[in-house]
């Protein structure tokens, strides 16, 4: 191990780390609201509803295939449909496809885990289903989502390394390039791993702070929606 070389690698990997952060956080910003909203919707729809079938098929595909296949699917199939978006967009798209698929299940499970008595209490007061969902069920479900979503976020960041296969020059692709150019693998892999760790660890610190705030201030979380 050559500390000087590792220092150089670290500096050269910072811009690709920036791209990894950008692509992951962009994908997160789309996948989380999309996945959770579709999950909440799925919890409300019957199994036979056409929208349910589409959502279920999405989840089924994402769970049943490796992310590598999902990324290649976007990379090779979109051009066949006459679409040729930039690599960054394809990368984000693949991560959204994958992560939203998992977050649909998080959203659905969280909504369904709110006891039926909560629905009945609101109904008995005169709230319709939509208002019940908005005023009482979602605020309770949201808190149950935080932990699983944070877990999914770290999965998403790690999955972004697979985008290297479509030549997106993110952290892993850059590390690969440096190690093959110099024929030095161990130093690069250590530095690369360190950078992923720092990024994910930083995010998870933010996540647990958020989770603590949401669960400790239970009343405030509810009052947030109540105050609208």
């Amino acid at each position: 191990m050559d500390p000087v070389f590792m220092g150089q690698v670290l500096v050269r990997l910072l811009p690709p780390l920036g791209l990894t952060m950008l692509v992951s956080l962009t994908a997160l910003a789309i996948a989380t609201p999309l996945g959770l909203a579709l999950g909440a919707l799925r919890a409300e729809l019957s199994d036979k509803h056409p929208a349910s079938r589409i959502i279920d098929a999405w989840v089924f595909f994402v769970r049943g295939t490796p992310i590598l296949i999902q990324i290649f699917a976007i990379y090779f199939l979109l051009p066949k449909l006459g679409l040729q978006p930039p690599l960054f967009v394809m990368g984000v798209g693949a991560l959204v496809l994958n992560s939203a698929g998992y977050q649909i299940e998080i959203g659905r499970a969280a909504v369904q885990s709110v006891p039926r008595g909560q629905w009945e209490a609101a109904a008995a007061l005169g709230f319709d289903r939509h208002a019940t969902l908005r005023e009482f069920i979602l605020p309770q479900a949201a808190r149950r989502m935080v932990g699983p979503v944070m877990n999914e976020l770290s999965q998403l960041i790690k999955a972004s390394s697979v985008l290297s296969v479509i030549t997106l020059f993110e952290l892993h692709k850059a590390a690969e390039a440096i190690s093959s150019a110099n024929l030095r693998f161990s130093e690069v892999i250590v530095v690369e791993g360190f950078l992923y760790f720092v990024f994910i660890f930083g995010i998870s610190l933010i996540a647990s702070a958020l989770e603590r705030r949401l669960s400790a201030a239970g009343a405030l979380a509810g009052a947030g929606s109540f105050a609208r």
Partner: peptide
């Protein structure tokens, strides 16, 4: 209700 069913976050 038998189980009260208060909104736990309020």
């Amino acid at each position: 209700f038998q189980q009260f069913n208060l909104f736990p976050n309020l």
